[in-house]
């Protein structure tokens, strides 16, 4: 393996350095989130009214970029894909959790990461949302004895789309790129449609 990545997994540096890296990556993450307007709840929520689909464009662009990067770095022998962490699948909790999360997302107008950007830039709603999140985690923790069994159910481990669909990794990658570009085209169309006034504009006297 020429590249020897992921470097931390190969013991190239220790925990201290990894924490410094965490901060640096976080700074870049927060920077780009704010640049994309994700720290602004009104802009974000436009996604759910199909007026401003920046959330879709930004998230999908990020996913496609990293996904292609992982594929080709691995193909080039620079990265050991088997050592990259794949979030585990827990079908039922993730579907139910997703629904609840989405409802909260539409209500709050920010997600956990972007709420920190919002709070950092002075938005009180960001702070309120952070407080809510902490409360929600606490509620979950206290309720865990009751719902823990459900939360740990239907686990499938590090199940990936290629495995689930029986397609090659590269085919899934190509498919996701195609879906993303289609989604972008759709998003542009929807936004243009939203800009066109549905009713005649009120004339300002």
């Amino acid at each position: 393996m020429i590249g020897g990545a992921p470097f931390y997994e190969f013991g190239r540096f220790g925990e201290g350095t990894s924490l410094v890296i965490a901060v640096l990556l976080g700074i870049a993450f927060g920077w780009f989130l704010e640049q994309g307007g994700m720290g602004n709840a009104r802009k974000l929520s436009g996604q759910f009214y199909l007026t401003d689909l920046s959330v879709l464009k930004l998230m999908f662009s990020a996913i496609v970029t990293a996904m292609l990067g992982l594929f080709w770095l691995s193909w080039a022998g620079l990265l050991d894909l088997s050592r990259v962490y794949v979030p585990e699948t827990f079908i039922a909790p993730q579907v139910v959790g997703g629904l609840i999360f989405g409802a909260g997302f539409a209500t709050g107008g920010l997600c956990p990461g972007t709420s920190c950007v919002a709070a950092a830039t002075g938005r009180k709603d960001g702070l309120a949302l952070i407080a809510g999140m902490l409360a929600g985690v606490f509620v979950f923790g206290e309720a865990f004895p009751a719902i823990g069994q459900f939360a740990d159910s239907t686990g499938r481990g590090a199940w990936t789309l290629p495995q689930a669909f029986g397609l090659s990794y590269g085919t899934v990658v190509g498919g996701i790129v195609a879906v993303a570009l289609g989604a972008f085209a759709g998003a542009e169309w929807l936004e243009r449609r939203a800009e066109r006034p549905a009713r005649p504009m009120k004339v300002v006297a």
């Binding site: 909790p93 959790g97 609840i100 999360f101 989405g102 209500t107 999140m133 902490l134 929600g136």
Partner: peptide, 13 residues
């Protein structure tokens, strides 16, 4: 909204 997301995120890990 934040509370709901807190619960949802922990369920979904």
């Amino acid at each position: 909204g934040g509370t709901a997301m807190g619960v949802g995120a922990k369920l979904a890990r």
